[in-house]
Design a protein around this nucleic acid. Structure first.
Lengths: 148, 148
DNA sequence: GATGCAGCTGCGACCAGCTCGCAGTAGCGG
DNA sequence: CCGCTACTGCGAGCTGGTCGCAGCTGCATC
């Protein structure tokens, strides 16, 4: 989706739900769209504050919550630090190396088999979002044999 | 493994690594073993304080860290709240319902296919521990159609 | 069974990552 | 261009966990 389209689309959705389009919200949404990778709330706040220094972190958190409730974005916990945010239709998954922090993106279909199994055997609808798989990348797995 | 065996075994391992066996540590380990389900640090502290009211939460956290470094236990984040602890050889996985909080335990082999795939296609060694899969149990999935 | 010295402990202060209540500001439907 | 109400900046507060310190104690040694 083109960035400009997404920008207008989200604002329209926001208005359709009785929300208001304000300067801070435009800036936060812009920052979200401009971020290629997975930004934290703190990074987004910093980005927004470049142009709008008075923007408060709580405003960012509140708007991110709103967007999440609207189904526009999701947050993911990649490890022990802050959550990262990404658009909800960005359905890939994340493998996070516990040793070096490397994040590998995995397309959704890699988990199709697991999804089917959990549904049929455990009556459980796995949600593709909000999901990070910890482990070790090859380099780290080889350098730290059976850590513990 | 019999509870008494595990108790002595862990204490022996602790001593073998230069650690000391103290009254608080015995009590915390006992609480861990006695807990059938997945206790949080707070629950363990409360349990220990029944018999040893002076035990401080930081003592519990520090000992849990030590046990984790020794490979005896692991902690898992089941959701947004506190972490839960369990013995490292307890290799099942957890499905957590985002709506009602239900935790379903899944044997390790259910994820074998995924593990192989991540290893072969992504050079990534998934770690069976520290792993919770969010989603919805059948009841909640039916009552909340396409939430977002 | 006394001694010494790590390693452990209670304690309180501190930290990160959020969340909330408040009073003032400002979209936007009319 | 009015007024209702959503949103905002601000600072305090909350949860879950960490840290530095000074004193205590397990336990190896004698």
């Amino acid at each position: 989706m083109a960035a400009a389209d997404r920008f207008e689309e989200v604002l329209a959705l926001l208005r359709a739900h009785g929300g208001r389009v304000t300067a801070p919200r435009r800036a936060i949404l812009r920052a979200l769209i401009d971020h290629a990778d997975h930004p934290t709330a703190e990074q987004l706040t910093a980005d927004v504050q470049v142009g709008h220094p008075e923007t408060h972190e709580s405003t960012v958190y509140r708007f991110l919550d709103d967007l999440e409730r609207l189904g526009v974005i999701d947050h993911v916990h990649l490890g022990h630090g802050p959550a990262v945010y990404h658009f909800a239709d960005d359905t890939h998954h994340h493998l996070v190396c516990k040793a070096c922090g490397l994040v590998v993106e995995v397309p959704e279909r890699a988990l199709e088999g697991l999804r089917r199994r959990l549904r049929s055997d455990f009556d459980f609808e796995m949600e593709p979002r909000h999901f990070a798989v910890p482990g070790r990348c090859r380099a780290c797995a080889e350098s730290t044999k059976v850590p513990s």
